[in-house]
């Protein structure tokens, strides 16, 4: 009905946070700290999350237009036409929509963890040098 609104809400918040960080620093390149640990900046990671949220929500919104659940005229959502459908729509946003946003965020957290791990992985050559 309008489950894509939950990821859209998260996308708006994350984009605002990312833009606020952008105002503070332009740095998106990976940095190596004094202990030799390579870190990917949070701003760059947030970009991945916003792209997944906005992109996914956009295609999902297209599906709702396809099914005639989103219209070009007020109130834009057909489920808003009566109280019963509105209640069902809100329930769907609270269940399916929130689960969608949660899954995307969980997968993004996994991607960030994997990316940090890949950046700090030693190549075969580096392992040989360390052994020698």
């Amino acid at each position: 009905m309008a489950c894509f609104l939950a990821p859209v809400t998260e996308a708006v918040i994350v984009t605002a946070v990312e833009k606020k960080m952008e105002a503070g620093t332009k740095d998106t390149v990976t940095v190596e700290n004094s202990e030799g640990v390579v870190k990917i900046p949070l701003r760059r990671k947030l970009k991945w999350l916003t792209r997944m949220l906005w992109g996914g929500a956009f295609l999902l919104a297209f599906e709702h237009v396809w099914h005639g659940e989103v219209t070009a005229w007020f109130p834009f959502l057909t489920a808003m036409s009566n109280a019963e459908d509105t209640a069902e729509m809100l329930k769907e946003i609270g269940t399916t929509g929130v689960c969608m946003a949660a899954l995307i965020t969980a997968v993004w957290a996994g991607i960030c963890r994997a990316a940090d791990s890949i950046m700090n992985r030693k190549t075969d050559e580096e392992t040989e040098v360390a052994k020698a």
């Binding site: 489950c3 894509f4 990821p7 991945w48 792209r51 997944m52 949220l53 906005w54 992109g55 996914g56 929500a57 956009f58 295609l59 999902l60 599906e63 399916t96 689960c99 969608m100 899954l103 995307i104 997968v107």
Partner: peptide, 12 residues
């Protein structure tokens, strides 16, 4: 990112 985002949402 766009396709993976949509795929995860449709999975739910």
């Amino acid at each position: 990112f766009m396709y993976w985002g949509a795929a995860l949402m449709w999975l739910v």
